[in-house]
Each structure stands twice: as structure tokens, then as C-alpha cells.
């Protein structure tokens, strides 16, 4: 007990001194204007990429390689968690909620799907994009599990289909990048590689950015759903049987 208190004091002292050291290292520039690459991005995104969301343009065009890596981190995690929980059959861990909730969910699903797709394909115009939309796609499968019982979703969409979607999303991303390389404009080049851009602010603008958003959306949607199902697989059977059908 005494040692534990001592340990805490040491930890607190360490953290406080670390914080003080970092606080002293702060720089607040007096000149509130953009400089460096940021100024260029703000001034030239429209003409360079055709996207109206500057953050999306940086994520998928100027610094698209980061996004490629970031999507790969999710891919790695999903693959690994599936490996950790491999070789276990999905057991039924719940029977779902009442018929009213099931019916209500059934009516909501199309809207959620439309919402998710709109987030994905309009990522270059409005805040949003592949990651956010993919996460919304994955919530649909989570809702399926909560409301219809744990076996429903796995019986409708087999894990193999999800894996195919996930891997093809990743390959689509790499293929768009290599297309730019083949055109001689560099990996993940956008307008230079011949992707055409419509008028700024329309759906078909931004060159390859919508394509990359779709690729990331496939990867993240299928990936997060696989992640969820790999973890839910190990839950135990409920003791009682199915609820009586009404």
C-alpha cells in the first residue's frame, strides 16, 4: 500500500515536470496568417484538384500517400483481429429485440445506407469522406447484430464477401496510385494523370478523389464490420431459448 502511494507520487511528479517542460516549449506566433504549404493549399486547391473541401484534397491528393498508409493500418488491424479470433464458429449470443424494433429497424436501414453512401461520395465537396462513411456502413451491421440477434448478419453477408470487398477496396486505392505512375505523373497523381474534373462543387469534380473515397469506404466499412464480428464471435450462448414468436 505504501509503495503504491509512493509510486503514484513519483508518477504525478514525472507527469507534472513533463507538462511544465512541454509548456515552456510552446511557440505562439504573433503573426496570424498562413505560411508554408498551408498557404499554398488554401490558395490553389480549386485549380489543382477541383475539390472544394480543402481537407479532403490534402488527404487524398497532396498527401494521399498518408491516407494509403492509414487505410493500411486499419486493414492490418482487421486482418490481425480476425487472426486472433480465428477458428471459432459464430455462436448465437442473442436473439434480438422485440418485433416492433425489428420492423422499425427494417424501415430505417435504407436511409442509413443512403446516408452512408452520400458521406462517401460527397467527401470532396462537404466534410466527410471514405472513413466516416465507411464507419456509418459498419454501424448498420452492428445494429443488425443488436436488433436481429447475433447470427442474422453473418447469415446474410458471409465473411468472405466482406473480405473480398475490403481487399478490393485496398487494391483499388493502389491501382489508382499506380495508374498515376503509369501515366508518368507520379504515384497517386490526380488531375495530372488524366482524371478529369467537372465544375467545382459538383458531384463529378475532384478527379480521382471520389474514387479514392469509395475505395477507402469499401475498406473501412467491410473492415470495421469484420472487426466487430470477430470480437462478438466469442460471446457465449444465452441460456434461455428463443423468445416466443408473436
Amino acid at each position: 500500500m505504501r509503495a503504491q502511494v509512493f509510486h503514484r507520487w513519483i508518477g504525478a511528479a514525472l507527469c507534472l515536470s513533463l507538462g511544465w517542460w512541454m509548456w515552456r516549449g510552446l511557440i505562439v506566433s504573433a503573426d496570424p496568417s498562413l505560411f508554408g504549404p498551408a498557404a499554398y493549399y488554401v490558395a490553389n486547391t480549386a485549380s489543382d484538384t477541383g475539390a472544394s473541401n480543402i481537407v479532403a484534397a490534402i488527404l487524398f491528393d497532396y498527401r494521399g500517400f498518408d491516407t494509403f498508409g492509414e487505410a493500411t493500418v486499419i486493414y492490418t488491424t482487421v486482418c490481425g483481429v480476425a487472426m486472433l479470433f480465428a477458428k471459432r464458429r459464430l455462436r448465437r449470443s442473442s436473439w434480438g429485440l422485440s418485433p416492433i424494433v425489428k420492423r422499425g429497424m427494417g424501415m430505417m436501414v435504407p436511409f442509413i445506407l443512403v446516408y452512408a453512401s452520400s458521406i462517401v461520395i460527397m467527401g470532396h465537396i462537404t466534410p466527410g469522406g471514405g472513413f466516416q462513411g465507411g464507419a456509418v456502413f459498419a454501424t448498420v451491421t452492428v445494429l443488425f447484430c443488436v436488433i436481429y440477434g447475433s447470427k442474422f448478419e453473418a447469415s446474410r453477408i458471409s465473411p468472405k464477401v466482406k473480405e473480398v470487398i475490403e481487399s478490393s477496396g485496398a487494391l483499388l486505392f493502389a491501382a489508382v496510385g499506380l495508374w498515376g505512375l503509369a501515366e508518368g505523373a507520379g504515384f497517386l497523381a490526380n488531375l495530372d494523370a488524366g482524371f478529369s474534373s467537372g465544375p467545382i462543387g459538383s458531384l463529378f469534380s475532384g478527379g480521382a478523389i471520389p474514387l479514392l473515397n469509395i475505395a477507402v469506404g469499401m475498406k473501412v466499412g467491410a473492415g470495421l464490420s469484420t472487426l466487430f464480428y470477430s470480437m462478438i464471435k466469442i460471446l457465449e450462448d444465452p441460456a434461455e431459448g428463443p423468445p416466443p414468436e408473436v
Binding site: L34, Y41, V42, N53, I54, P127, I200, G201
Partner: peptide, 10 residues
């Protein structure tokens, strides 16, 4: 926010 069309600075 950094969204086009931009009003003022970003």
C-alpha cells in the same frame, strides 16, 4: 473552415 467557397480567411 477550409471549405470552398471561402468567406474571409481560412
Amino acid at each position: 473552415p477550409p471549405l470552398l467557397p471561402m468567406v474571409g480567411g481560412s
